[in-house]
Amino acid sequence: MIINNLKLIREKKKISQSELAALLEVSRQTINGIEKNKYNASLQLALKIAYYLNTPLEDIFQWQ
C-alpha cells in the first residue's frame, strides 16, 4: 500500500492544485485524482512532483 502525502505537503508549501498542475503541465483534475488516490502517478510525474515541491519522493509517496 502507498501512503500519499501530496496534499499535506502541497498545502504546507502554500501551493494550490492549479499552480502545481500548471508547473507539471497536467490538469488540476489530475492532481486532485492523485491526492484522492483515484489515480496513480506515473514514475515520471511522481519525480516531477518531488522536484517542483523540493521534497524527496519517498516523503510524498511512502510504501507501507
Rank of each mutant, 00 (worst) to 15 (best):
E19Q: 14
L8H: 14
S42T: 12
T30I: 13
V26C: 10
L45N: 01
K48C: 07
I2V: 13
I15K: 05
S42I: 04
A41H: 04
A21P: 00
D59I: 08
E19T: 11
I31G: 00
L43T: 09
N4T: 03
K12I: 09
K14I: 03
L47H: 12
K36D: 13
V26L: 04
N40S: 14
I60C: 03
R28I: 15
P56G: 06
K36M: 15
N40Q: 14
S42R: 04
E19W: 04
A46G: 11
K36C: 14
K36I: 12
L8W: 09
T55Q: 05
N37L: 07
S42P: 14
L24G: 01
I9L: 08
Y39G: 06
D59C: 12
L45G: 00
A46H: 04
K12C: 12
E58A: 11
Q64P: 12
K13H: 10
A21N: 02
Q17L: 11
T55L: 04
N32Q: 15
Q29R: 13
N5Y: 06
N40H: 13
Y51L: 09
A50H: 02
Y39K: 12
V26N: 01
M1E: 06
E58F: 10
I9N: 02
L53M: 06
Y52F: 14
A50V: 04
L6Q: 01
G33T: 06
R28G: 06
L53F: 07
N40F: 11
L45M: 10
Y52K: 05
G33N: 15
A46F: 05
I2C: 15
L45W: 03
Y39S: 08
A21F: 03
K12Y: 09
A22Q: 13
Q64N: 12
N4Q: 03
K12V: 08
K48P: 00
L20A: 01
N4S: 04
F61D: 00
I3C: 14
A22M: 12
D59E: 14
Q17D: 03
I9F: 09
K7Y: 05
G33R: 14
T55I: 05
V26S: 01
N32K: 13
Q29D: 15
L24H: 00
I31V: 12
N5G: 04
N37K: 09
F61E: 01
I49H: 00
L20N: 00
I49W: 00
M1D: 05
L24S: 05
A41C: 15
L8R: 13
K12S: 14
N40C: 15
L23D: 06
P56L: 04
K14R: 12
K48F: 02
I9H: 07
I34P: 01
A46W: 12
I2Q: 08
A41F: 11
I15C: 07
A50Y: 06
L6A: 01
S27P: 15
L8G: 10
K13Y: 08
I60Q: 01
I3A: 12
K36Q: 15
I15E: 02
K48N: 07
K12W: 07
Y52W: 10
Y39L: 15
A50T: 03
Q62P: 12
N54V: 06
A50K: 03
M1Q: 09
N37W: 08
N4H: 04
D59F: 08
K12H: 12
T30G: 00
M1P: 11
K14A: 09
I49V: 05
G33S: 14
A22D: 13
K14V: 05
L45H: 02
W63K: 07
E19R: 12
T30C: 15
K36P: 02
K7N: 04
P56K: 08
K14E: 08
L43C: 15
S27D: 13
L23F: 14
W63Y: 09
R10D: 02
L57P: 04
F61I: 03
R28T: 15
I60D: 01
K36W: 07
L53Y: 03
K13G: 04
K7D: 03
I31L: 13
Y51F: 14
L43Y: 14
T55P: 02
L6W: 02
A41E: 00
E58Q: 12
L47F: 11
L24C: 15
I9G: 01
L23E: 08
L20W: 02
A46V: 06
E11G: 05
A22N: 11
L43E: 07
R28W: 14
L20Y: 02
N32F: 05
I9R: 02
I9W: 06
Y39W: 11
L24F: 00
R28Y: 09
I34M: 03
D59N: 10
Q17K: 06
A22F: 09
I3W: 07
A46Y: 13
L57C: 08
R28P: 15
S16H: 05
Y51T: 08
S18W: 10
L45C: 07
I2R: 09
Q64M: 07
Q64T: 10
Q29G: 12
N5Q: 06
M1V: 11
S27M: 02
R10M: 05
S16T: 14
E58K: 12
P56M: 03
L53D: 00
I49N: 00
I15Y: 07
I31F: 03
K7R: 12
Y51D: 08
N5W: 06
L8V: 14
K12L: 12
K13I: 07
A46T: 06
T30E: 08
L24E: 00
T30V: 15
D59Q: 13
A41V: 15
L20S: 00
L8F: 12
N4F: 07
G33M: 15
A22C: 13
N40T: 15
Q64D: 14
L24Q: 01
D59W: 06
